[in-house]
Computed example of a mutant assay.
Amino acid sequence: MISRVSIESEVKNGITQLKSAFFNTPFKVVDIREDKKNPLLELILMSSSPGVLDEDELYFDYTLNEGSQLEITTQSFQRLFTMEKSAFQETKVRIKENAFLSYLPHPCVPHKGSDFKSSNAIHLVGNSSVLWGEIFTCGRKLKDEVFEFKQFQSVTKIYKEDKLVFFENLYLKPSESNPMNLGQYEGFTHQLSLVFLNDLCEIKGLKKQLDSFLNDKNCVFGISETPTNGLVVKILHDKAEKLMLWMKEITKIIKEHGL
């Protein structure tokens, strides 16, 4: 199945609204903002499908016009089912002047025998900013499917004024290299990755806040400053629910620190 979602936001009277939205089976885009005076538009991406199936192609296109503030979440875990061939997902994002996107999806769960690749390209201009999250899991642990997928790859590229400023390639092929080995997950099974880029934020102070927040958590983490004004947060753990909770709390700290 080939599925597409296209969203464009704009600002009217200081409030971010949907300028246009297109989606086909199995997706639906729903506005979940409770306070209609809140400048931030909150959308949830819903799906009637149980997950990603063999030979699925998923295309997402998000455009934030000048001054837009948009947060996108998902309905449920993204399950990657057993595949004979493979499946693919492509996301393209354009964030214009003074606009901000927060993308906080549920964890990805690759089932035994799945083969999946995703490509994310995010384009920033001027004072636009982004908070981009991803939670990867080893598979269905309760069914003893720990790193039993064929292959998983997630490539994320962020451009500033068409110049590549951030690149990440998460590539796992357990048949060739055991992810539990030294120098990789080392006994952990889940990973949270968050990247935040914002030219106007006081990054060093934010880094100290996040360090303080994570220091008393039962996890392994690292926080790095990016070459541009931003941070990358990585957390290893063995529970998806914990990572989801921490992702939301980290997002709250970032917003309170100032965008």
Rank of each mutant, 00 (worst) to 15 (best):
V52T: 06
T73F: 02
Q89S: 12
L64V: 10
G51H: 07
M83Y: 08
G51T: 04
Q89N: 06
L80A: 03
T74S: 11
K96F: 13
T82G: 00
N65E: 13
Q78K: 13
E55M: 12
I95C: 02
D54N: 14
Q89P: 00
A87Y: 10
E57M: 07
Q75P: 02
Q75E: 12
N98T: 12
S68F: 10
S49R: 07
I95D: 03
Y59T: 09
K96W: 13
Q69S: 09
S76T: 12
K96L: 14
F60C: 01
S49M: 07
F60P: 02
L80D: 05
T63S: 08
R79L: 06
K96E: 15
T74R: 05
Y59A: 02
S48T: 15
S86T: 11
I72M: 03
Y59V: 13
E66C: 02
R79E: 04
P50L: 03
E55Q: 14
Q78C: 10
Q69H: 12
F81T: 01
N98I: 05
I72T: 04
V93F: 04
K92C: 01
L64F: 08
Q75R: 10
G67S: 07
E90N: 13
G67R: 06
K96A: 07
K96S: 12
S86V: 06
T82I: 08
R94A: 09
A87L: 04
E57W: 06
T63G: 00
T73W: 02
Q75I: 06
S48M: 13
K92G: 04
D56N: 10
E66Q: 14
D61L: 03
E66P: 01
S76I: 05
A87P: 06
K96H: 14
E71H: 10
T74V: 07
F77C: 05
E57C: 02
D61R: 10
A87S: 15
D61P: 01
E90M: 07
Y59K: 13
A99R: 08
Q69L: 14
S76N: 11
S68V: 10
T82V: 07
S48V: 14
D56Y: 13
Q69N: 08
N98S: 12
F81P: 00
F60A: 02
T82Q: 12
N65A: 03
T74K: 03
A87C: 06
N98Q: 13
E97I: 12
N98K: 15
N65D: 11
V52N: 00
S48G: 04
F60E: 02
A99G: 03
A99C: 05
D61V: 06
E55S: 12
Y62R: 06
Q69P: 00
F81H: 13
T74D: 01
